[in-house]
Amino acid sequence: MSDDERAQRLAELKRKMQESAKAKKAQQSATETVSKPAVEKVKDTSSAEVTASAAPATETPAAVVVETAKPAAASVAAAEPSPVTASAFKGGREPTPDDRAKSQMNRREFLTYAWGAALGLAVLQTAAVSFFFMYPRFKAGEFGGAFFMGPETAVPPTDAPPQNEPDGKFWWVNVEEEGPHAIYVVCTHLGCLYKWVDENYRFECPCHGSKFTREGFYIEGPAPRSLDQFEVTLVDGTYVVDTGAKTLGSPADESPFKGTG
């Protein structure tokens, strides 16, 4: 920036300052909220700040002079609440076109918002990272993961008693025409572990006496629904039980074996 330009700019700033000082005076008499001495003080210091904030310019190149001069100009504007906020929050007079120009977002404000938005994104991303970090992953063979139950040809007979699979927490039951089921070991009533009672050929819960058929259907007792089951799929000829995918049993009323005990 040439010296001429700078002089011109400074003159312009000075003119603006005087104008806004006048406007401020007018506003001050109009509004009672602003105390008189405070505004007086601002008027006194505003010119002082021009020199004050320009002082570091001795160390920094010309660009800084402008940089520091800007806030000086703005300082005057600041003394007068800017129209957006003034009209929005404080009410009062209609904003003049001049006020509007001053209230427009400048580069720095815009960049700060952009920064805030980017930080918001980063926070979202951190939340996603934390979620993935904490969310447990199950290997095959631990409860919550997959269980390989052997080849299609090696399922137990359809009339065999249920086979307990303690690690996977399910009973392995082969049902005619349907294939094997993996029935979750926990009673649908209040979380007790029911047992297979071979004499009665059914599951019986020791806590409150709910009874279920070999296939998991509700027979009697306080349980609200048939037994829950895990998803069984056939992958490359091998049965895989996904202990992470549980299907809730159908309601007790819908059980075809209700009351048959």
């Binding site: 960049l111 700060t112 920064w115 980017a118």
Partner: peptide, 12 residues
């Protein structure tokens, strides 16, 4: 602020 924005974006 510019440095801040760039750093956040680079981190993302």
């Amino acid at each position: 602020i510019g440095l801040g924005i760039l750093a956040v974006l680079a981190g993302i």
